[in-house]
Amino acid sequence: MEKQHNWPLWEIFIRSKQGLDHKHVGSLHAADAAMAIENARDVYTRRMEGVSIWVVESKYIHASNPDDAGAFYDPANDKVYRHPTFYDLPDELKHM
C-alpha cells in the first residue's frame, strides 16, 4: 500500500446561488486545494453556476465534543422562548 502517497481528505462546504450559508455536503480526497475545489465542483455541484465552495483539510476541523453538550447548550435550552415552538401561532400562518 502506498501510504505515503495518500491524498488528504477534505471537507466540502457549499453555498448555493440563493443560499445564505455554506453547508457541509461531504468529503473527498485531493492532492491540493485547487484540485479539492475543482473536485467539489464536479462532484457536489454538478457544475451549477454561481455557487461558492469552501474546502478545508479534514485535519484542520475541530469539532465540539457531544459529551460537553450539557455545559454548552443547557443554559440556552432553558431559555425556551428562543425556540419557535414556544409561540402559539395560528395554523393558517405558513412559512414561519
Binding site: 491524498w7 473527498l28 480526497h29 485531493a30 484540485m35 475543482e38 473536485n39 464536479d42 462532484v43 457544475r47
Partner: peptide, 11 residues
C-alpha cells in the same frame, strides 16, 4: 486513477 478524477473527466 482516482474516483474524483473519473467524475471530472466524465464531466
Amino acid at each position: 486513477p482516482i474516483l474524483e478524477q473519473d467524475i471530472a473527466l466524465s464531466n
